[in-house]
Design a protein around this nucleic acid. Structure first.
Ligand SMILES: O=c1ccn([C@H]2C[C@H](O)[C@@H](COP(=O)(O)OP(=O)(O)OP(=O)(O)O)O2)c(=O)[nH]1
Ligand SMILES: [Mg+2]
Length: 770
DNA sequence: GATCAGGCGCT
DNA sequence: AGCGCC
DNA sequence: GATC
């Protein structure tokens, strides 16, 4: 058999091929001009949230003029860090920035502290609007129904005039949520209890299907199909979160909103996998439920006596007028697409921000994402997405079950797999900047991927990144399903999306996603250094919408405060020339301190990127074999650069035990006039010569590439990290934590690591997988 | 249905 | 331990 | 979201 041992072996080769394939990338379009005029922040601090609190006003206080001196007013005493000093950048080992927030912060905090209707009860007060929402819940809640029809009369039972007593503010985890239960009544004592509890925790209970519903709580014995049947829907609106009873239980127990994506909360969907084909699975006689004391329903429809009115259904997916960045993309020639990026590179990010913030309003809430059990987040209501896809585009709506996609995807064993010729196309060090006919498609997918990321989905974003990486390698516009599905890492769903983008210039799923009124503020929040989905969602839930809200009402870590103060600066990408300049500055400083020190600029810069998100510096020295031996140097370098006002803040410094090998902070080009200085993120990685190769590999990335390599190493029974390639590493099967260090196989030479893994050498710029 | 990299700092 | 970042 |  050609394919000896399948499982691992297959995977191994697959991964290997992946690292290998390198075809039709782009043209050798190289040299790019970069304006040094990198100053104007493009962002507006406040989200576009229509009717919200104190909009745009966070703006001005930001500039760094005052803040700049904040972190480093007294470079001198850095070394010995008298712990109460005002100016050292040292923390712990004296390498850290002073957390004090003098003058500068005042502007941010003080200013318009008035507006907040705030009940000054604790650190987390929520702006007025939310309060209104909340309050409206229990009381008038009696008729929860948003669109009343006659139905509620029928449904009747809902509106208990019962008095709901809200739990204490802090525990109202469901504030802003609107629940729709299925079965749609509170006859079952159990369900009734859940409903009551939900309301007490801030949720609004709705019995009519409206577009305000955020959660669909389904009885454990019901299936997804049952739900759709009852609702008379072909699919669920993407933003409605459907979960089972366990979800509520856990939320109550843990007093927090659980990650609805977890498997345990998913509503059963028997026909899920099989579906594709024809799967008209006999509805079968239900499960003899039992878990609940509910009588087993007889027929689908009769199960719930009162089907909701179709009219009240939300129409999320429906296309919005025109705000979408209509790109005259047509299935036509590639040239129709290219003009755009031909002009600007860095513009990509800026325009994205601008575009997305424009969206009007449509629906709901976001879903929390993060999990307690350490279980990975995965699928959310994928079918919803799926359905949106075809119900909107291809699928005329005739049969819910589409023809079984011509899915057959070959195990792409090297088709043309050699083209080393193509490698040369991407020299010039700007592979990533090469225009590609699929650029528009890529930009759209990246946005959707970014959306999923900020919403907390762990895997979709990487799937989108990989897909974009592959798309970028194609030399022609991918506009048909067949073309798309052929590409590895692009499956059925992405293929459909790609087609939609290429043929219509739009992507409904993205539009509906970004139209969510909470998306803009969510995006704003996760843009803060040190903030991600979990925190952002929580703040959103509390009603915060602007950076000002956060500064005034939320407990922020020092780094987060800094992240807000320099929001604009840190948001900007860095022109390659500037990275070069910053790097040179460091090299000079290092050389003066110790001529043997080697400074290497890694990260996206080493990959040849035209702009970088930060500066990644590797510090090494011939002959060294331990990080510890370099620590003193780092210390002196940091001290020096700080005194030179090159380093302006420290974000993360190695632990005292000298073991630490990294230093994260912010820097600035001292040579520029203060006015035009832009704060940049900078990372130092301390690397003994014996680990140089592995460190280089790690710090060069990109992240997707690293993960591929590491996965590969793993499949080969080894383990790869920033220090080296090891074998015999044992990990606790449960916690997955390392138990045995293992034996070092290679760490010194980047090339040898490739060899050991059987991966052909790839230049840094060939390691761009997304 | 399982898997998807591995490590570290801050709170 | 949870979160966030590289 | 894709793959095995
Ligand atoms: O999750 C991650 C993030 C980063 N890295 C490695 C690869 C990456 O190249 C390097 C530096 O990280 P950084 O976040 O700076 O990424 P970058 O590749 O330099 O891109 P950017 O231009 O955004 O800085 O660290 C990883 O291995 N895993
Ligand atoms: Mg970088």
């Amino acid at each position: 058999m050609t394919a000896a041992s399948k499982s691992d072996k297959a995977r191994f080769f697959e991964e290997l091929y992946r690292l290998n394939e390198f075809e039709s990338d782009g043209e050798p379009n190289e040299a790019r001009e970069f304006l040094k005029t990198c100053s104007k922040p493009i962002l507006s601090r406040t989200s576009e949230e229509p009717s919200l609190i104190p909009p745009r006003k966070v703006l001005k206080p930001f500039k760094k003029v005052p803040s700049i001196q904040r972190s480093i007013s007294e470079p001198e005493k850095i070394k010995d860090v008298p712990n109460a000093t005002v100016g050292s950048i040292g923390k712990r080992s004296g390498l850290r920035g002073n957390p004090q927030v003098p003058a500068a912060s005042g502007s941010l905090l003080g200013k318009e502290a008035s507006s907040s209707a705030g009940s000054a009860d604790s650190t987390n007060q929520r702006p007025s609007i939310e309060d209104r929402r909340t309050v409206s819940n229990p009381v008038p809640n009696t008729l929860v129904l948003t669109n009343s029809t006659g139905i509620d009369t029928m449904l009747g039972k809902k509106r208990k005039k019962d008095t709901i007593k809200l739990v204490r503010e802090a525990d109202r985890i469901f504030n802003g949520f609107e629940f729709f239960f299925l079965r749609n009544d509170d006859k079952s004592p159990l369900r009734k209890r859940r409903i009551t509890l939900s309301r007490e925790h801030g949720a609004i209970w709705t019995t009519t299907w409206t577009n305000k519903i955020t959660h669909l709580i389904v009885d454990n014995d019901l299936t997804r199909k049952d739900v759709l049947t009852y609702l008379k829907l072909n699919s669920l609106p993407p933003q409605v979160i459907m979960v089972n009873e366990e979800y509520l239980s856990d939320c109550f127990v843990q007093r927090r909103v659980m990650n609805s994506l977890l498997k345990k909360y998913q509503v059963k969907d028997p026909d899920a996998g099989a579906a594709k084909q024809m799967a008209p699975p006999p509805p079968a006689s239900e499960n003899s439920d039992s878990s609940l004391q509910l009588k087993a329903p007889q027929s689908k429809l009769s199960r719930w006596g009162n089907p909701p009115q179709q009219e009240t259904l939300p129409r999320i997916a429906q296309a919005r007028p025109a705000s979408y960045p209509q790109q005259p993309v047509v299935t036509g020639g590639p040239e129709a697409l290219s003009p755009r990026e031909a002009t600007t590179l860095s513009d990509k990010d800026g325009s994205m921000v601008a575009e997305t913030q424009d969206f009007g309003a449509l629906t709901e809430w976001i879903q929390l994402a993060k999990d307690t059990e350490g279980l990975p987040l995965d699928n959310e209501d994928e079918d919803a997405v799926d359905s949106v896809d075809h119900s909107d585009s291809d699928d005329g709506g005739a049969s819910p079950l589409r023809a079984p996609a011509k899915r057959i995807k070959r195990f792409a064993i090297k088709q043309g797999g050699t083209n080393q010729a193509n490698f040369q196309c991407m020299t010039g060090g700007t592979a990533a900047s090469t225009a590609n006919p699929n650029d528009y498609t890529i930009s759209v997918l990246e946005r959707l991927g970014a959306y999923y990321k900020r919403i907390g989905d762990q895997w979709r974003p990487t799937a989108y990144q990989k897909a974009c990486g592959m798309l970028r390698k194609q030399d022609h516009l991918i506009c048909t399903y067949e073309e798309a599905i052929e590409i590895r890492t692009i499956g059925h769903r992405l293929a459909k999306k790609i087609v939609e983008i290429a043929t219509t210039g739009r992507l409904r799923r993205l539009e509906s996603a970004e139209a969510d009124p909470t998306d803009a503020p969510l995006k704003l929040f996760v843009g803060i250094y040190g903030v991600n989905t979990t925190l952002a969602s929580e703040w959103l839930r509390q009603g915060h919408r602007t950076l000002d809200d956060l500064v005034k009402n939320v407990k922020l870590s020092e780094n987060q405060k800094l992240g807000i103060e320099h929001y604009d600066d840190l948001q900007q990408r860095i022109p390659r020339e500037e990275v070069t300049a910053l790097g040179q500055y460091i090299k000079d400083a290092a050389a003066a301190l110790d001529p043997d020190i080697e400074i290497i600029i890694g990260g996206s810069y080493r990959r040849g990127a035209p702009t970088s998100g930060d500066i990644d510096i590797i510090i090494s020295k011939p002959g060294t074999t331990s990080t510890t031996s370099l620590t003193p140097f780092l210390h002196s370098l940091i001290t020096h650069l700080t005194s030179q006002k090159f380093l302006v803040a420290a974000l993360a410094v190695p632990h005292d035990d000298g073991t630490g090998s990294k230093w994260h902070g912010c820097c600035v080009l001292p040579s520029k006039p203060r006015q035009s200085q832009i704060w940049r993120r900078i990372d130092f990685l301390l690397v003994p010569a014996s680990e140089r190769g592995a460190a280089l590999l790690y710090f060069t990335g990109d992240d997707i590439f690293n993960r591929s390599m590491r996965l590969l190493a793993n499949k080969m029974g080894m383990s790869l990290n920033q220090r080296g390639l090891y074998e015999n590493v044992m990990r606790d099967r449960w916690t997955r934590k390392k138990v045995t260090e293992g034996r070092l196989v290679e760490g010194r030479e980047e090339r040898r690591i490739f060899e050991r893994l059987g991966v052909p050498w790839r230049e840094p710029w060939e390691r761009v997988l997304h």
